[in-house]
Simulated scan of single mutants.
Amino acid sequence: MGLFLSTYVNKVDKKGRVSVPAPFRSALVGGGGGPTEVVIFRSLQAQALDACPIEYLEQLSAALDDPNTPDDYRDLIETTVFGGSVRLPIDPEGRIIIPDEFLQFAGISESVSFVGRRKTFQVWDPEAFAAHEKASRDTARSNNISLSTILAKTGGLAKAAP
């Protein structure tokens, strides 16, 4: 499973199809062979859709088997993520058809922003994503959050030193 990086904006065609960006298709399979599907579900935190390879949900499922996971937390994830997920086939041209109820949830009509989030990606209405990104940057500035502060707090700089 590869990393999902960057942001891409693609049009939704008249048949409701949208092209998954080529780098995301490569990340869905970790570089070997062409991906055949992507799993999407409504985000728990934003007016957007979360998307990932099935392997990511298999990892999440295994993590939920941990006996220290509270039952109510497990139930929440099983109901909202697993119960609300759909597997979307990727056609030979790299396109998917996102179900109408998902498009409505995310407020998507003519264009889609694909936003890389490391092991997953999100699907947004481009204007909604622009507002979300601005708010995120404003929060980072007001809380003095930077890559170096994150690495320093996690000990990442010490680990990376030769």
Rank of each mutant, 00 (worst) to 15 (best):
A63P: 01
T80H: 12
A160L: 08
Y8V: 03
I97Y: 07
D125L: 02
G34Y: 15
E78C: 00
A135Q: 12
I77E: 04
I108H: 10
V115F: 10
R17N: 08
I145N: 02
A158Q: 15
A160S: 09
G83R: 13
V112H: 09
I97S: 13
V12W: 06
F4T: 02
T120G: 01
V12Q: 04
V18E: 03
R118Q: 02
M1P: 03
T79P: 00
Y8E: 01
E127M: 06
A27G: 13
F4R: 02
Q122L: 04
S142F: 02
A106F: 12
S111Y: 12
L60Y: 04
T120D: 04
Q45P: 00
D100H: 09
F105E: 05
D13G: 09
I40A: 06
Q59D: 12
N144L: 11
T79H: 09
K153Q: 04
S109G: 01
S19L: 12
G34D: 15
S113V: 03
S113T: 13
P23S: 02
N10I: 00
L60Q: 03
V39H: 06
L5H: 04
F102E: 05
T36P: 00
G156Q: 05
P126Q: 07
F114V: 08
N144G: 00
I54W: 11
G33F: 10
L28M: 01
G31D: 13
G33H: 09
R25I: 07
D50V: 05
R74V: 04
L44M: 11
D71F: 12
D13W: 15
V9F: 05
H132L: 06
C52G: 03
G32E: 00
K134Y: 06
P23I: 00
S136M: 10
E78G: 01
A161T: 13
A131S: 06
A27E: 09
N143I: 01
A131D: 13
I40V: 14
F114L: 07
L3G: 02
M1N: 03
A63F: 11
L147V: 08
F24A: 01
W124F: 04
S26A: 07
E93A: 12
P23L: 00
P67Q: 03
F129I: 03
L49S: 05
A128F: 05
S146V: 10
F4S: 04
G116C: 08
V29W: 05
A160C: 03
G2M: 08
G107T: 14
Q45I: 00
N143M: 11
N144V: 01
R42D: 03
S109Y: 12
L60R: 01
L147Y: 06
E110N: 15
